[in-house]
Computed example of a mutant assay.
Amino acid sequence: MRLSSPRIPPLTDSEMDADQREITAPMAAQGRVINIFRTLVRAPKAARAFLAWGNYVLSRRNDLPPRQRELVILRVGYLCKSGYEWTQHVEIGLRDGLTSTEIPRIKQGADAPEWSEDDRLLLRATDELHHDKFITEATWTALRARFSEKQCMDLVFTVGQYTQVSMILNTFGVPLDEGQTLDPDLKGD
């Protein structure tokens, strides 16, 4: 985590107004409202727009298979040094098919041993987008030989969304949710 305390603290239930409670009600109905949304809801109009796009990226409308989507999200979280993002998506990634041996390997990137060619390409493309905001022609050509045009678009959408999410989390200082433990590789700068 980049900050030891939040710059913009998550709202408690009692601090939320009616509009903020309306936005978080579907989350509360599913069990809990996590700190990212308790923070974002301080700007209700932005939170609504953010949730609409974020729901696309995390839905079945995103043509990347869930396991590969989570591989990409975790790589972005690691590259952006976003402890909150990494922590949330390790749990999701494990549910969506990543293994406990693959999770730490994501930190090593595309050159780590044992990745499939598809995973290696997704990791390489994620790194290129992160570092240069562009996928090279060689990587794009390799992606297009293995993935549909829509999947390639969704890859870029996913990297872009989670880069933005990581910037929000890091800059606002969103704290981990109760019961979560920060990965030691993502402590501080």
Rank of each mutant, 00 (worst) to 15 (best):
A138E: 09
R95N: 13
Q164M: 14
D127S: 15
T39D: 03
L58I: 03
E149Q: 11
G179C: 11
A110R: 15
A125S: 13
L123G: 15
Y162T: 02
I36S: 06
A47T: 14
G179W: 07
R38K: 13
V165F: 14
A138I: 12
R2N: 09
F37M: 00
F172T: 14
G77C: 09
D127H: 04
Y56L: 08
A138Q: 14
T99Y: 07
T39A: 09
E91T: 06
T136E: 14
G54T: 07
E114L: 14
A47N: 10
L186P: 04
Q151W: 03
V159T: 14
H89R: 12
H131M: 04
L94T: 01
T139R: 09
D189K: 15
R42H: 13
G83W: 12
L64G: 03
G109E: 00
I8T: 13
R95W: 00
H131T: 07
S59V: 11
D63P: 00
M16R: 03
E178K: 04
S14A: 15
T158G: 08
F157N: 01
I168M: 06
E91F: 11
D189V: 13
D183N: 12
Q108L: 14
S148G: 00
Q180E: 05
P66I: 03
C152S: 06
S14H: 15
E22S: 06
V165M: 15
L94G: 01
Q68F: 08
R48W: 05
A29Q: 07
M1P: 10
E178L: 00
G93W: 01
P6F: 00
C152G: 09
D118W: 02
E85R: 04
T101N: 11
A52T: 15
C152V: 12
I73H: 04
P26A: 04
A46N: 08
R60Y: 01
M153K: 08
E149M: 02
A43P: 02
P175V: 03
G31Q: 15
R146D: 13
G173F: 00
T141F: 10
T136S: 11
I34R: 06
A138D: 07
R144D: 11
L129R: 09
S82K: 01
T171S: 04
P65I: 05
V41K: 09
R95L: 12
R21M: 05
D127E: 09
D119S: 10
G93R: 00
L176Y: 08
W115D: 09
Q20S: 02
D127T: 02
D127P: 07
A112L: 04
G83C: 05
E117Q: 15
L155C: 11
T101P: 06
T101C: 00
D177Q: 04
T163H: 02
F147C: 04
H89P: 06
I73C: 03
P184S: 11
E114F: 14
V165W: 13
R32A: 10
Q180D: 05
M1C: 09
L186V: 12
P10V: 01
S4F: 12
E85S: 00
T181R: 14
V159N: 10
P26T: 00
N62W: 09
